[in-house]
Amino acid sequence: MALHTLTLDLAPAAPKTRIQARLHVGVTGSSDLEIMMHPEDLSGRVAVTVVTPVTGFDALWTRVLQKFLDDSGLCDARIEINDNNATPAVVLLRLQQALAAA
């Protein structure tokens, strides 16, 4: 019954983008999510924590986040997500919006 927490240690195919300051976007509305990002020296890697009521989609989360990192080249960051049943498309969109807001 408890919330599911997924932690991932990922790296973009080609690291090139770093955020300068912490940021927060989105609302944990129904089928939506909120995202927080912090710059952190992780030797080019990205640490992700996803908190979600949904279980059984860990592989899908990994694929979506890996795609976002490969597309954006984001590195050296910590990402924290509160999810409420968002679809992969919405997750990708919110991640892109978060980075655009940086």
Binding site: M1, A2, L3, T28, E34, M36, V51, T52, P53, N82
Partner: peptide
């Protein structure tokens, strides 16, 4: 006490419901 303070509700988490920072 904004999102960066991460004041999420432990009571929601106990029920398995989504939380907000």
């Amino acid at each position: 006490a904004g999102p960066f303070d991460r004041v999420t509700s432990p009571h929601l988490a106990l029920l398995g419901d989504a939380v907000a920072f």
